[in-house]
């Protein structure tokens, strides 16, 4: 179980001949991810770590049909790569590339909706269902199979929290990063819906940050839908000054909108436990488990 990817996922790597694509294709293969082909315009007919490389997704799909793609293509060309995957029937796309122009990202998302496809990212560390499959760039040793779902707007902060969960013997069902760009595909609410249906997931960790109103809308969703699984959250950026972009293009406080406090308050009002420091997430989950076990 887990969400979106598992042992049955067959993936292609778009941009497999670049430095990042090549490096991470190897690590994903080592983790056991089924990578059936790669693409790189102009490099068709070659191989990367034994994976056949094609010029187009169309050709790759004919030879080795895949249901997912991970994109390492540079930002100016990444939207084109995403549209290529969508036109060729790929339903789960992970876009690792960061700083894709907003206009391009908006176009890709519109096509994805029409094609009924799921996009994770851009600017995401990817997704991992521990012990089964990884389509991403995260270090694997910090994860272990279990029943906590993690959904996050950050990369390394997710590793920080996942590692602390693993140290406390709290394994994970699936961990995914939504991406740090201003326009991204999957959001917290979509992920929560998927975790709700996943029988393996018993609790969810939600890692948010300043900027936008996603966390507030998610809090509203949790209340309105009476979300049945316990959630522990962490919000980064309490100390961020307004008007400054904190690394992620999407992490910016505009006036009073998008502050960490606004998000923390909204989540607390939705009965979500909000941790003060990253290492408190695991402790809060332990407490919840205690409450649940003891009725």
């Amino acid at each position: 179980m887990g969400i979106l990817i598992n042992k049955k996922t067959h993936a292609i790597v778009q941009g497999i001949t670049g430095t990042q694509g090549r490096f991470h294709a190897k690590l994903m293969l080592e983790y056991g991810t089924k990578i059936v082909a790669g693409t790189s315009p102009g490099k068709g007919g070659t191989q990367v770590h034994g994976v056949p490389v094609y010029d187009t997704v169309e050709e790759a799909q004919k030879k080795y049909p895949a249901n997912a793609s991970i994109i390492f293509v540079p930002a100016p060309f990444a939207a084109d790569a995403a549209l290529e995957a969508l036109e060729n029937e790929i339903k789960t796309l992970i876009i690792i590339t960061e700083h894709i122009p907003i206009k391009d990202a908006i176009n890709v998302m519109a096509y994805a909706k029409q094609a009924n496809a799921t996009i994770i990212g851009p600017n995401t560390p990817g997704i991992i269902t521990p012990g089964q499959s990884k389509l991403g760039i995260m270090p694997t040793h910090i994860f272990k199979p279990g029943n906590i779902g993690i959904v996050s707007r950050s990369g390394t902060l997710t590793y920080e929290i996942a590692a602390s969960l693993t140290r406390k013997n709290l394994g994970q069902s699936t961990c995914l990063g939504l991406g740090g760009d201003p326009i991204t595909g999957l959001n917290f609410i979509n992920a929560l819906k998927m975790f709700e249906k996943d029988r393996q997931t018993k609790a969810v960790v939600l890692i948010g940050e300043i900027g936008g109103k996603l966390e507030e809308l998610t809090a509203q969703y949790i209340v309105e839908e009476k979300y049945p699984k316990p959630i522990v959250a962490f919000i980064a950026g309490r100390s961020a000054p307004p008007g400054k972009r904190m690394g992620h293009a999407g992490a910016i406080v505009m006036g009073k909108a998008g502050t960490a406090n606004s998000k923390i308050d909204a989540l607390k009002n939705a009965d979500v436990k909000v941790a003060e420091k990253p290492n408190e997430v695991a402790e809060s989950l332990k407490e919840l488990a205690y409450i649940y076990e003891n009725g």
Binding site: S152, R153, S154, G155, T156, L157, T158, Y159, E160, G180, I207, E209, I210, F234, A236, G237, R238, S239, A240, M246, G247, H248, A251, A260, E276, K277, P278
Partner: peptide, 17 residues
């Protein structure tokens, strides 16, 4: 100095904490 926007933000928050 850190790697990753979220981690650096959390680092600043922890310092402030």
């Amino acid at each position: 100095i850190g790697n990753g926007a979220g981690l650096v933000m959390a680092t600043l928050d922890t310092i402030q904490h």
